[in-house]
Nucleic acid binder design. Structure first.
Lengths: 328, 328
DNA sequence: GTGAAAGCGCTAACAC
DNA sequence: GTGTTAGCGCTTTCAC
């Protein structure tokens, strides 16, 4: 627990009332310069800081935002979290973090956050059930889905334009003359994953093509390595992976098998543009997501809905860009 | 803000007093099965959840832990944060996160966390001034420095045994016959960095050697790449880097220069054992820090000091292990 | 501009 | 076992 020293003690020390102390620490109130100075002096001397929790009880604004995020150790998620913290911090908001190792726990974590009177919730993990969504609505706590869509809900959402981005990846493979194209998905069933799959298929369809092979890698390196085996068996000349980690796994699988050269024999495209994608050992061509823009948009959306509770939920799509390196 | 519905409403609906409701939701209290059931039914129907903040006001336990961490996008930090969340979550504690882009802001962030009545603080970033440390003591909020030591303070600390670990790295380089050894530090002045430097020098000294060259890489890839230039100019046959990111940069610098082979001509050792170190393209021999153990220890230490405020600050050193791959 | 009083939602003594 | 009472530390009418 924190500061034993309360407003009452500061008031006594400064020879004023509790209200005067409160006003000094509440922006937008009027206090005489003399009082303010006296109060500030005593406060500083005693080391007083207002109890943010007690204040919340009355103002109904905690200035804390609940964030549910899975797999922080995924480089892109880490980046997102970092940007999110910066964007919220700038608005005077702090993050109450809960990471969901298992997506089915997301609901419970959200409910728990609600009991801490968070001003809003950002979900970048798992699925949110309609019951949890209802709880948020009931608590009139705005929710923003980040990099994920909620099944059927009135939650706002911010994400990359995954569909257009994946189409772009397909078009690039076609443009560099690839025709035997394989696809490695992440986790089918998640909106992000499905959108990328859809866009990619659409892109190939413009050339009247379909993937010669499809596999799921679960968005991580180990899974990607496994999925790569099955894909490579079809001797593709191009592969699009739903994230960079899996694309790197493909490159490593190719190297360890020997014979096939990247990009000459096989072009590889990833997604995210994590720092590791730029390593010379991989030089991965990839679809870059703008983590900073996504975080900023999520923060802005949440802020707007907090300020104006009646506001309708919105959906914001951030465009992606293709970053060409050597792998495709 | 959350649940409009209060204990009073549940009490009315269930035909009991507020206290009865409170008791049902407070572990370790006795309520008759009949009452409990009635209350739980009404609560469920109304969607009631106790207001954790109001509760904190009275119990003086928020069950939230403030975490100050820099550079979440550093893979090792991300891992640490993830493990920390798991360890705390297991104890029913949530993380109020504040990331410090600039270490000199650490103080301010800590003060801010204190106003949220956090039960404890974990600092894994920057330096903590004595004034901030005093504020924590005054608020009787225990602090654990994670992967960092506080200048002169009564804060508990958990970290790797950096000195012994670095000595081990030196001994390994010597054992594989290297004699022209260079050293790349992270950020001199930070205890972690200085401990590694000290241990490494001690290790070399056992063979009567000194580094033939020293440079600082700032713990990131770009900085490591730069520092590598100056180190490689001295034609070392072994390099120890204070983290994996910089070690990978050294390997890339060597490759781009051409001529020198790793590990035949130059052995490279890193520190952390981040996931990328295991990539076949780097196969980095490195000193592994046990993030999970560190997080667990930090959580346990904090928990103990929260339960028993009088308890003395302790220092816990987690041993590291050498992970041999191909680079050394 | 300032103080007195009321109350945010909850738990903890205390009687019964 | 249960209700009543008294605050936790704060902001906010409301008179002055």
């Amino acid at each position: 627990m924190s500061s034993r020293v309360t407003a009452a003690e500061v008031a006594r020390a400064a020879g004023v009332s509790r209200s005067a102390v409160s006003r000094v620490f509440t922006p937008g109130t009027s206090v005489s310069p003399a009082t303010r100075q006296r109060v500030e002096a005593s406060a500083a001397r005693l080391g007083y800081r207002p109890n943010a929790l007690a204040r919340t009880l009355i103002t109904r604004r905690s200035r804390i935002i609940g964030v549910v995020m899975a797999a922080i150790d995924n480089p892109f998620h880490a980046q997102l979290l970092q940007c999110l913290d910066a964007a919220l911090q700038q608005r005077g908001l702090a993050i109450l973090l809960r990471s969901a190792m298992r997506p089915e726990l997301t609901d419970e974590l959200i409910l728990h956050l609600l009991s801490y009177q968070v001003d809003g919730v950002i979900v970048a993990s798992g699925l949110v059930s309609s019951s949890a969504a209802k709880a948020c609505v009931a608590a009139s706590t705005p929710v923003v889905m980040l990099d994920r869509l909620m099944r059927a809900s009135r939650a706002s959402a911010v994400g990359s334009d995954n569909r257009a981005a994946a189409r772009m990846a397909a078009e690039h493979l076609l443009a560099i003359g690839r025709r035997r194209i394989a696809f490695m998905s992440g986790t089918p069933g998640i909106s992000t994953s499905d959108d990328r799959a859809r866009g990619f298929l659409e892109g190939l369809a413009t050339a009247g093509l379909k993937p010669i092979a499809v596999a799921s890698g679960g968005y991580d390196y180990a899974g990607g390595r496994l999925a790569a085996q099955s894909l490579l068996a079809h001797a593709p000349d191009g592969i699009f992976c739903e994230n960079d980690l899996m694309a790197m796994a493909v490159i490593d699988a190719v190297r360890s098998a020997g014979g096939v050269r990247v990009p000459e024999d096989l072009a590889v495209i990833g997604f995210d543009n994590i720092p590791a994608a730029a390593l010379p050992a991989y030089a991965l061509t990839t679809v870059a997501q703008d983590a900073q823009e996504m975080a900023e948009a999520a923060a802005a959306l949440l802020e707007a809905r907090i300020a104006e509770p009646g506001r309708k939920a919105t959906r914001r799509l951030i465009p992606c860009t293709l970053v060409r390196r050597q792998s495709a």
